[in-house]
Design a protein around this nucleic acid. Sequence first.
DNA 1: AGAATATCTGTAGAGTTGTTCACACGTTAA
DNA 2: TTAACGTGTGAACAACTCTACAGATATTCT
Lengths: 139, 139
Amino acid sequence: MTRSSQPPAPAGQVSECSLRLVDADKVEQVRSRMPEEADVADLAVVFGLLSDPGRVRILIALLEGEMCVCDLAATTGLSESGVSHALRLLRGPRVVTVRRAGRMAYYSLADSHVRMLLDLGLTHVGHTGRDRLQMAAGR
Amino acid sequence: MTRSSQPPAPAGQVSECSLRLVDADKVEQVRSRMPEEADVADLAVVFGLLSDPGRVRILIALLEGEMCVCDLAATTGLSESGVSHALRLLRGPRVVTVRRAGRMAYYSLADSHVRMLLDLGLTHVGHTGRDRLQMAAGR
DNA sequence: AGAATATCTGTAGAGTTGTTCACACGTTAA
DNA sequence: TTAACGTGTGAACAACTCTACAGATATTCT
């Protein structure tokens, strides 16, 4: 998921060695608007976290509010260890946050952007009609 | 707090063997709203396509309009073969479409949802400022 | 026709990811 | 205290992904 590909050549010069161009102006224009390499990498990391069905189910579950690990496991069909591993990945970039109470750990979505990404993605995938997640997205 | 106590699975077949539950009602509620497995899988595939920096650069470039393979290569820093491989992956789920003119192939974004996903993601990484994502830092 | 061009595809190998298992850690109950 | 519990972690391994290279295909030029 996170495999850093070769960063674009230093800005300014479009034409490197033996690279063919058809529309040099367009290339230059697009390159000038291209975000920084680090931003692109971060974006890819976030999307990569959403690229596993198990993690997606976890995050969709969390759309409805906080949940503990064992309930997430029951909800998603993953093992508890699997849920824990997944939540660790999601905790790193602060996609989810944890609230601890005794030996329980309650997880919730940390950031509304992920909520929107999930909602948009579900719409894209053809999950049309029916309320589903809309209501939960308000919080 | 709700002890697990595990009563004989209240009616709705929340889960089967030996899974501990803390809040069975919540689990049942969330499970009833969980999208179909196929939709979740498709969603993960789409996000997976956005999880590679090279492909993200290609798609960001296409935000400005259609481009041919060699200009995409020059723009993104990928090899032309690499761009072609990436575009093949994106063509499958109709994320991009191709218009052929002679021996040229002009690609463009096929679907406005991907455009929105990219925009949302970009404003997200832009707004989080230099709060760089730290993958391993969570722990 | 042959050569050059633009794109596409197959393949191998290096690297990465997800899952499972076994156990460790901190908390609560007995 | 000991035992049970909920969760976290590390290691191992299969499965997958990306990249580079070679070559294929299709189109255009001379």
